[in-house]
């Protein structure tokens, strides 16, 4: 891992089998993403944003090329190593929140720490801190069904951030939210990015998200068509 570079992608190709042939979802992707970036994979549906995000998140593997995340080559990891990478270093935020409905807010946020086999007191401390970041201290006993969409996504952010991962991958995090909630969520994530130096990578086609990005990587038909740094005032 070169200094400050968390993710290095070289000549990435991803094919999916379709019938007797295959569908090429990503082609010749070359990228590097550094520590503390607030970057977005932007493009229309089917452009390969989520596929790229899944490969970086070690949920999928490349067909060709090299994807290196935190010094580990995604294509060569076995199931346990892959799970270990996600467990220790990656956080996920999903479009549909993916909260466990039978757990309350506290338990949902606590789950990644349980998987890390952390002590109870430490877990409590970290969960309280994460809930404070997203402003949900008073909802710790509520279940997801009792929360609004915005609150659910904030729980999802707290769950992703509770273990202080190096990288947070957010797939269309505002797709199910109204404008006000979207801005709240994005401001929260931007604040965490600045304070904790966590790298955020979004897959989005939502303009509300795009306006917060510091780097916009545009994809079309599985290729990177533009990669620009956005200078914020």
């Amino acid at each position: 891992m070169k200094n400050g570079q968390l993710i290095t992608i070289k000549e990435l190709v991803k094919d999916y089998p379709v019938g007797k042939g295959y569908f090429r979802a990503l082609e010749d992707i070359n990228l590097t993403i550094g520590e503390g970036e607030f970057a977005g994979l932007v493009g229309p549906s089917g452009s390969g944003k989520t596929t790229l995000l899944n490969i970086v998140g070690s949920l999928d593997v490349p067909t060709k090329g090299e994807v290196n995340v935190l010094g580990q080559s995604i294509g060569s990891l076995n199931a346990r190593q892959s799970a270990n990478l996600r467990n220790h270093s990656l956080g996920f935020i999903f479009q549909t929140y993916n909260l466990l409905p039978v757990y309350n807010v506290f338990e949902n946020v606590e789950l990644p720490l349980l998987l890390l086999k952390m002590e109870k007191d430490k877990r409590r401390e970290l969960v309280d801190q994460a809930l404070e970041w997203v402003g949900l201290q008073d909802k710790r006993k509520s279940r997801p069904a009792q929360l609004s969409g915005g609150e659910c996504q904030r729980v999802s952010i707290a769950r992703a951030m509770v273990k202080s991962p190096k990288i947070v991958l957010a797939d269309e995090p505002t797709a199910n939210l109204d404008a006000k909630n979207s801005h709240n969520i994005l401001q929260t994530m931007e604040k965490l990015n600045q304070e904790l130096k966590t790298t955020f990578i979004f897959a989005t086609h939502d303009d509300k998200v795009i306006q917060y990005l510091h780097r916009k990587i545009s994809l079309d038909d599985g290729r990177v068509v533009n990669d620009e740094q956005i200078i914020k005032e």
């Binding site: 949920l59 799970a83 996600r86 467990n87 996920f92 993916n98 409905p101 890390l116």
Partner: peptide, 16 residues
């Protein structure tokens, strides 16, 4: 299924 996927994303192996 989403819950299963979420567990995997959070760091569990499918065997777990």
């Amino acid at each position: 299924q989403k819950e299963i996927g979420t567990h995997i994303a959070l760091g569990m192996t499918q065997r777990q």
